[in-house]
């Protein structure tokens, strides 16, 4: 996990569900296969209705149709980000598209857990409704240790909630790396808990 995450923000609203993040017909791809993992980047956010895509104005492309990686690094969203399905393909798709952090008011439980388990991105929670304070295209800098987001475009600073008990899992690089670090799993291929 980087200590400073800097990049352009892509802003979404409330209840962005997993079908909007990665539509179900792309789930035939297997993210455990590296060439297919990459494909998820191309389809990330492809079912978000155009009017809700890139707030406040909407109708902003997350990336061109044939691109795998987006120019945006951070997603700013409202309430209940990642609700719906248990598909781990959702945080994977954002990761594959180059997203390093999401800042939402709060998350649906399974999305949050999946994001942490695979350390695909850092799921921060904001105390303010940042999806109405930050504009798509603004450059933001997140200081992961200090739990602060600075909007470089406007100069405003926003506090984020501490990551708490999931921070060590993200730092380790996900659930398996963490379990090995704390001695819960013996080694890479022991097959024993």
């Amino acid at each position: 996990m980087r200590t400073i995450i800097t990049g352009k923000a892509f802003v979404l609203g409330d209840n962005v569900d997993t079908d909007q993040i990665i539509p179900a017909h792309h789930l035939t791809l297997n993210p455990a296969i590296p060439e297919e993992f990459r494909e998820f980047g191309k389809h990330a956010l492809s079912s978000v209705p155009a009017a809700h895509k890139g707030l406040p104005k909407g109708h902003v492309a997350f990336h061109e149709d044939d691109e795998f990686i987006s120019a945006y690094k951070v997603i700013i969203a409202g309430k209940n980000f990642g609700c719906g399905s248990s598909r781990e393909h959702a945080p994977i798709a954002l990761n594959a598209a180059g997203i390093e952090a999401v800042v939402a008011e709060f998350y649906a439980r399974i999305f949050f857990r999946n994001a942490v388990n695979g350390a695909y991105l850092v799921p921060f929670e904001s105390t303010d409704r940042l999806c109405e304070r930050i504009c798509t295209g603004d450059t933001v800098e997140i200081n992961v240790q200090e739990n602060v987001l600075i909007n470089k475009t406007t100069g405003e600073t926003w506090r984020l909630k501490p990551l708490g008990e999931v921070a060590p899992i993200l730092e380790a690089g996900g659930l398996f790396a963490y379990a090995r670090q704390v001695g819960m799993l013996k080694n890479s291929f022991s097959g024993e808990p």
Partner: peptide, 30 residues
């Protein structure tokens, strides 16, 4: 279950919930 609607089985008086692939892989092994 690796599906969000795994919660259906709560109708049988059990704890049932949906999980992702990493959690499921961890359970498969441990």
């Amino acid at each position: 279950g690796t599906d969000s609607h795994t919660c259906t089985a709560g109708a049988f008086g059990e704890f049932a919930t949906g999980i992702g692939n990493t959690d499921a892989a961890f359970i498969l092994g441990t």
